[in-house]
Design a binder for these strands. Structure first.
Lengths: 194, 194
DNA sequence: GATTTAAGCTGAGGCAACCTCAGGATGTCA
DNA sequence: TGACATCCTGAGGTTGCCTCAGCTTAAATC
């Protein structure tokens, strides 16, 4: 939309770095337990820092979420590259999809943010989302080239399916997590018959 | 959880009914354009009523959402009954699923509330959700009895699939609505081959 | 070690939304 | 025309968001 997205950067000064890290740690914990709309003032006070300091390092909630989930998404991309080298492209795609669903539902509200970021440049998470999109698209293409996945499935559609599965997982209570089954049924729909 | 859910009831006195209806109309409009977390104070003022009046009729946001969506869900249940009489149980199930996805995504945030209500008694929408669950389960059972849908699919799983599809639709921008395709792929996964 | 200065920190305060409740208004019924 | 239950009002307490003017301090320089 407007200008480039703000990606939080670890600051230079020692006290700055200390606070940055403390805020990030507190945010991860808070998001985990209260979802993506956890109170920022709580996060600041958990980190032992004034609210202004949180805003200095992370001017928007989205930038904080981005920083808190960057590692996970980087891993996902890295893992995709490793999987590409494997023998079976369908197995690779499936393994990656499972992992993606888990990452997308790290905490309540995350999938929504990622789905938003996927198609909205000017969003902090957009960069990582695009990278992930590419990883997935590569794995998909390979599986399609091997004739193992229906050729008319597009990467965008793949991401819709993954987001849907992740959303269901996000909603689920510990005793009722249908996401594995959800993915299984999806796979049934997108793989080719033999 | 605690006690029975509060289901908003149309009040007795003429001014009460007038306000109740006005609030409901304003709420529908607001939910449509701002999602389920639209400002209640805005809704009240749009309805030409003080905030206290809104709370009198609808003590919680969930009760207002319930009232605003009750008709739609009732229709869905009624339609299921009509469909049961049809010749082809798979066609009936599919038609109903399409309709369900549309209803679930009437406005942003609704699927989340419904998914919540489905398994949480003590929620205003729980009653309607259960009724819907039953409708869907009936149609599913019929299609399974006819050997048209994989027999191991449970009603709960069916609702996970529908919610996932609805969520994707809810997220979609007008130019990018993958929900039809989503459902198509799901159907591929749950129908039996011939 | 003292000086300088850019980087960082603080928290009061304005704003918006939520929700409650005491006091006042009014439809309805007899 | 009362009497009264129902209904309405809106001020105000609370929480969370976010900004900014003023203060502190790490670290680079001399």
């Amino acid at each position: 939309m407007d200008g480039k997205p703000y990606i939080a950067q670890r600051p230079k000064r020692a006290d700055g770095r200390r606070n940055y890290d403390a805020i990030l740690a507190a945010a991860r914990k808070a998001f985990e337990s209260a979802g993506a709309d956890a109170s920022l003032e709580d996060i600041a006070s958990q980190a032992g820092v004034a609210i202004g300091t949180l805003y200095r390092h992370f001017p928007t909630r989205a930038s904080l979420v981005e920083a808190a989930t960057r590692d996970g998404l980087e891993n996902l991309v890295a893992h995709a590259e490793r999987l590409t080298a494997g023998p079976d492209p369908l197995d690779a795609l499936i393994a990656w999809m499972r992992e993606a669903v888990v990452h997308f539902s790290t905490f309540r509200g995350l999938v929504g943010i990622l789905a938003q970021s996927m198609y909205d440049e000017g969003t902090p998470s957009h960069t990582m989302c695009s990278a992930m999109h590419r990883s997935g698209a590569d794995l998909l293409r390979a599986a399609q080239a091997a004739g193992r996945v229906r050729p008319d499935l597009t990467p965008d559609e793949l991401f819709d399916l993954l987001s849907g599965a992740a959303w269901v997982r996000e909603q689920a209570t510990p005793d009722r997590d249908g996401s594995a089954r959800f993915l299984e049924l999806l796979l049934e729909g997108i793989t080719t018959r033999d």
